[in-house]
C-alpha cells in the first residue's frame, strides 16, 4: 500500500520520504495570490503552505531523490473566473517544477486543465465530494487518475466505488482530519475566534425544538439531551479528542488504522494521513503508526491480529470500545 502524507515545510520532505511516506502532499500559496485574493485560499488552508515555487522545486528534488512522489493541493471548492485562471497558471508552473500530481477540488479548474493535457497526474480532492460511480467515471473522463474519497464514506460505499471503476485509483483517509461537516459542501469560513471560529466547532448555544410548536414530552426531552451530549462527545473525539495526543505524541484520530486491511481487500492502494496543519512530531508519529499497519497488511498478517494491534497501538485500547474516533465505525460496531 502507498502512504500519502502531509508536509508544510521544506525540511519535512526528505525526512518523511525516508521514513516511509510514498507520496508527500502540500499546499503552496504564492504572495501574488494573497495580494490579489486576500483571505480566499487556493487550497482550503490559509496557513501552513509553502511560500514559493522555489520551495516547491526543493521539495520535489528531495522527494524524487529517494524515489517518492509529490502532489500539490489546489483544492479550493469554488473560484471566480479570475481565481480559476490564476490556479491554472500556478498549476502550469508547478508542473514545470516537476510535481507529480495536482489535487483538484473545483470542477471549473478541472475543465480548464483537461484540454491543456499537462504532463501531470490529476487527483480529485475529497472536497469534490465524489460519492458515486457515475461521478468517478465522469472525473476519469475529465482527466482524473485518482479519486480521494471524502470523509464520512462507509466501507460499503468505498467497495461499490472501487469495484465500479476498477481502472481508477482511490485514496482513503486513515488518520487525522475529522470535521463533522462535508468539506466540499461547507461554504463558511474558519473565522477568527472573536468572530466565532470555524462553524464546525459549533461554539454557540443551540436548542432542539419541535417544528409543530408543541412542547416535548419528558421522554422526548431526555432523548434529545442524550443525543446532544453524545454528539458533543463524538465531535470532540473527531477533533482528535480536543486536539490532544498520547503522552508519546501519537494523534488520537479520527482513525481508520484497523480498516487498512479491509481497504486493501477492496483494492484501495493509497491511504491518506491528513493534517497539513499539524506539527512535525504529530506528522511523524502518524507516519509511524500508519506505516506499521500498512507493513503488516502487506506482509499478509492475519486481519484480526492487525486489528488487535491497531487498537493497542496507542496503549489505550479502551478508546476503541466505541466508534467515536473511527473513520470507519462499522469495523467496531458491526
Amino acid at each position: 500500500m502507498k502512504i500519502v502524507a502531509p508536509i508544510s515545510r521544506v525540511e519535512e520532505a526528505a525526512i518523511f520520504a525516508r521514513q516511509g511516506a510514498d507520496e508527500l502532499f502540500f499546499g503552496v500559496i504564492p504572495q501574488e495570490w494573497t495580494k490579489r485574493f486576500g483571505r480566499f485560499t487556493a487550497n482550503r488552508r490559509s496557513a501552513n503552505n509553502l511560500d514559493s515555487l522555489a520551495d516547491v522545486a526543493e521539495v520535489v528534488e528531495q522527494v524524487h531523490s529517494v524515489g517518492k512522489r509529490t502532489s500539490v493541493a489546489l483544492n479550493g471548492t469554488t473560484h471566480t473566473a479570475e481565481q480559476a485562471a490564476f490556479v491554472v497558471e500556478l498549476a502550469t508552473a508547478l508542473v514545470e517544477k516537476g510535481v507529480d500530481a495536482l489535487i483538484i477540488g473545483d470542477i471549473q479548474v478541472l475543465a480548464i486543465l483537461q484540454p491543456l493535457q499537462l504532463p501531470v497526474r490529476i487527483h480529485i480532492s475529497s472536497t469534490a465530494s465524489c460519492r458515486n460511480v457515475p461521478t468517478a467515471r465522469l472525473m476519469q473522463k475529465w482527466g482524473a487518475d485518482r479519486i480521494i474519497l471524502p470523509r464520512h464514506t462507509s466501507l460499503e460505499e468505498i467497495r461499490v466505488l472501487a469495484s465500479g471503476v476498477p481502472d481508477l485509483e482511490f485514496e482513503a483517509f486513515v488518520l487525522n482530519d475529522g470535521c463533522p461537516y462535508e468539506e466540499g459542501l461547507c461554504h463558511s469560513l474558519h473565522l477568527p475566534t472573536e468572530l466565532g471560529g470555524p462553524l464546525c466547532f459549533e461554539s454557540f448555544d443551540s436548542s432542539v425544538e419541535r417544528l409543530d410548536g408543541q412542547p416535548e414530552s419528558a421522554d422526548e426531552r431526555k432523548l434529545i439531551n442524550h443525543n446532544a451530549a453524545r454528539y458533543g462527545q463524538w465531535r470532540w473525539s473527531k477533533f482528535s479528542r480536543g486536539f490532544t495526543t498520547t503522552a508519546s505524541g501519537q494523534p488520537y484520530g479520527p482513525c481508520g488504522l484497523c480498516a487498512i486491511p479491509l481497504l486493501k481487500e477492496m483494492g484501495i492502494e493509497h491511504i491518506k494521513i491528513a493534517g497539513r496543519d499539524g506539527n512535525p512530531e504529530r506528522k511523524q508519529r502518524s507516519l509511524e503508526m500508519v506505516g506499521e499497519i500498512a507493513a503488516q497488511t502487506e506482509d499478509a498478517v492475519d486481519c484480526r491480529d492487525i486489528m488487535h494491534f491497531a487498537r493497542h497501538i496507542r496503549g489505550e485500547p479502551e478508546l476503541c470500545q466505541n466508534s467515536d474516533m473511527c473513520y470507519y465505525p462499522e469495523v467496531v460496531t458491526k
Partner: peptide, 12 residues
Amino acid sequence: SARSQVCTIGSL
C-alpha cells in the same frame, strides 16, 4: 451554509 454527511438529529 454547510452540510454534513452525518445527521445529528437523524441519530436521535
